[in-house]
């Protein structure tokens, strides 16, 4: 328990240990700790960034999906409208065609009727002439009396 030279030697040893620790031990270990800390912070930031980007991407995807859906619905709507339009048009056309056909047939019928009437009239005229011939028992000169016969047929 004497205080002696040991004290001085202990001080020297202590100083040497501290110096060695400060020079060779502390800096590399603390440096590695700081580096790892920076790395971890960087990794966390990157993860955060990735997370945000992913969220953004998901939002974008949802928006695109919604747009596509509404566009598809619009296209279907348009197609439906167009289809009814086409059907309507076709119906209209068919109706017009029908009407035209009916009209044409009517015209033909009219023409045919006219012609038949004409024919009938001529036949009646010739019959009338024949009847008149018979009545007069004499041949009538059709060229001389044509005008009369004609006027007669006109009156039928």
């Amino acid at each position: 328990m004497n205080i002696n030279l040991t004290l001085v030697l202990q001080m020297v040893a202590f100083a040497a240990f501290v110096w060695f620790c400060m020079k060779f031990v502390w800096p590399p270990i603390v440096g590695a700790l700081a580096e790892r800390k920076a790395k971890i912070a960087e990794g966390l930031a990157a993860a955060e960034r990735g997370h945000k980007e992913q969220e953004l991407g998901a939002q974008q995807a949802a928006k695109t999906m919604k747009d596509a859906k509404s566009k598809a619905a619009e296209i279907v709507n348009q197609a439906q409208r167009r289809a009814t339009e086409i059907v309507d048009e076709a119906k209209q056309e068919a109706r017009e065609e029908g009407a035209r056909l009916v009209h044409a047939a009517q015209a033909e019928i009219d023409q045919e009727a006219n012609r038949a009437r004409e024919e009938l009239r001529e036949k009646v005229a010739s019959l009338a002439v024949a009847a008149a011939e018979k009545i007069l028992e004499k041949e009538i000169d059709p060229t001389a009396h044509g005008a009369i016969v004609d006027s007669f047929t006109q009156q039928i």
Binding site: N4, L5, Q10, F20, C21, V25
Partner: peptide
């Protein structure tokens, strides 16, 4: 012996242990 004496055991073990510490950490 007065001041001019050294505790060999104290010196030996303290330097041994300090050396052990620094050797391992280094």
């Amino acid at each position: 012996m007065g001041f001019w004496a050294v505790h060999v055991d104290t010196m030996f073990f303290s330097i041994l242990l300090g050396g052990l510490f620094l050797w391992f950490f280094k």
